[in-house]
Nucleic acid binder design. Structure first.
Length: 481
RNA sequence: CGCGGGGUGGAGGAGUGGUACCUCGUCAGGCUCAUAACCUGAAGAUAGCCGGUUCGAUUCCGGCCCCCGCAACCA
């Protein structure tokens, strides 16, 4: 028997200094839909999620709240892992960067980059605004001062840090981009990173002085430094597979140099880290590249980026509480563009919920199963039908909205079929023909249900259970006024 | 000339080198199996503006105007 095809997918791992918001939900739901889809195709799926738990911001926040950093990240990691239940996710690994195995993997990764000659120490100057208690880059400054505290002089702090030779990888990265024209999806994001690299990337700092900021993975061979959070966090994509010890699992899912197999989902603010830094790091450590990086857009609310100060932050937990996980999953799948920014308002959400879920899917299931329960003596034998090309093609291109649109097109067609063929009349005049027609309708509902499974797994299960029991289900999506 | 995204009927959104699609809303019919639901039809868009390529542009190219990200929280 041929071995199952291995499918690896990972999201970026969220930084745990704030509760999960709708943006995380988007990325993880997209990933979950793809993971479930590939599992249904019969592939062996490894789906990674996790939490990024080191760094100065977390360190300070923990101290502010009077907690140890570990207690602080434990609390937040649990909140993110709770998304699994809330959104009905199928990930099989939750990688915490404070996990001992992950830390050891990050250190091994560091050593390999070091052996490759890509890590060096140099003096690093940072400008520090005491008013903000933050480092400031030149691009943030206005007239050489912090725009928020123009009356304060910036402090210049000299620190010796380790650097990664990203500059060395300019040509190798450009070669990589040329060799793998589908490395980054969509194209316009790929162009963005190509241009960035063509302009000559600079080496970046990958460590911090421990004395100043102890909350990080210790740098191998130097007690005075800890890794900069980015370096350690990126390694999670492979530490989750048991790298470096479990070579077999690693190769199976992350692939080989000849045939990379890792699929990464990331937001548009992550292009540099994922498509440049991480790829260069993999080259340096002599490991296979990522096969593909899918960059999604942001969710805006009322036309603006969500922010606490604007008060337009959408809380995914509250939505699930009121409408259920599938309702949110559906919205994110169908009404959020897979690559571009999309707007999310509660008004819009409710409108879509009523139109597509209550009046659409929920109602049509109700219509058909009522007919079946009333007129058919026994459950319809449903058969598995292969996924139609229109659906698979969309999902293979990560166009989850198109795939969903296709499914809802079938739902509308089914409503139409009931109205035009009038089975409810036919059973009265010709019982046999009427029953035959109802069986047909149930079969089409079952076929649609199969397509619904990756998108709205809970609803899909309710419908198939109802078909098997030949019983009208409880109201799937009650109308909301 | 810092980088990138966008401007599609009243509203919100897809899509595309060749009759412009969907949802909501409006108007008029139909149906009764269904979650005051569903089906049909109608009104409503000179596709931001101006040029170019083309037999043909909403779609490709150039210019202009406007909106939104690119500091923090943060995908």
């Amino acid at each position: 028997m041929a071995e199952k095809k291995a499918f690896y997918i990972t999201t970026t791992i969220p930084y745990v200094n704030a509760p999960p918001h709708i943006g995380f939900a988007l990325e993880i739901v997209q990933a979950d839909i793809l993971a479930r889809y590939h599992a249904l195709l019969g592939e062996e799926v490894f789906f990674n999620f996790g939490s990024d738990e080191h760094g100065v911001k977390i360190y300070r926040k923990a101290l502010e709240e009077g907690k140890t950093p570990q207690a602080y990240v434990d609390e937040y990691a649990a909140k993110f892992d709770a998304l699994k239940g809330t959104l009905n996710l199928s990930y099989n690994a939750f990688t915490r960067t404070t996990d001992p195995h992950h830390k050891a993997a990050a250190q091994e990764f560091w050593k390999r980059c070091h052996v490759a000659g890509d890590i060096y120490k140099k003096n690093y100057q940072i400008k520090y605004c005491v008013g903000c208690e933050l480092e400031k880059t030149d691009s943030e400054l206005v007239d050489g001062k912090c725009p928020l505290h123009p009356n304060l002089e910036l402090e210049v702090i000299d620190e010796e840090n380790y650097f990664f030779k990203l500059s060395k990888y300019k040509q190798p990265l450009l070669d990589l981009y040329a060799a793998y024209p589908e490395l980054v999806v969509p194209d316009f994001r790929f162009n963005e990173i190509k241009k960035f690299i063509e302009n000559g990337p600079e080496d970046f700092s990958i460590s911090r002085l421990k004395e100043k900021m102890p909350w990080g993975v210790p740098v191998p061979g130097d007690d005075s430094q800890v890794m900069y959070v980015w370096f350690d966090a990126l390694v999670n994509y492979i530490s989750t597979l048991g790298w470096p010890e479990d070579e077999k699992n690693f190769e199976k899912f992350w692939g080989t140099k000849e045939k990379p197999n890792g699929l990464q989902m990331a937001g548009k603010d992550q292009i540099r880290q994922q498509a440049a830094m991480w790829q260069a790091m993999l080259m340096s450590a002599d490991l296979p590249q990522t096969k593909q990086i899918v960059i999604h857009g942001f969710i805006t609310s009322g036309g603006h980026k969500m922010s606490k100060s604007l008060g337009n932050v959408i809380n995914p937990f509250a939505i699930v509480e009121e409408y259920g996980a599938d309702a949110l999953r559906y919205f994110l799948a169908r009404h959020v563009h897979p690559f571009e920014d999309s707007d999310f308002t509660m008004e819009r959400f409710k409108e879509v919920y009523n139109a597509d879920l209550a009046n659409g899917l929920g109602n049509v299931a109700s219509r058909i199963l009522t007919l079946a329960q009333t007129h058919l003596p026994e459950p319809v034998q449903v058969e598995l039908v292969p996924y139609p090309e229109e659906f698979t093609e969309a999902l293979n291109n990560f166009e989850i909205n198109q795939a969903s649109e296709y499914v809802w097109g079938r739902i509308h067609a089914l409503d139409k079929k009931i109205t035009t063929t009038e089975p409810f009349k036919l059973v009265k005049t010709d019982a046999e023909a009427g029953k035959k027609l109802i069986v047909e309708l149930v079969k089409e509902l079952a076929a649609i249900d199969l397509l619904l499974e990756p998108l709205v797994p809970e609803t899909s299960k309710k419908i198939i259970d109802a078909i098997v029991a030949n019983k009208k289900p409880e109201t799937l999506f009650p109308r909301k006024e």
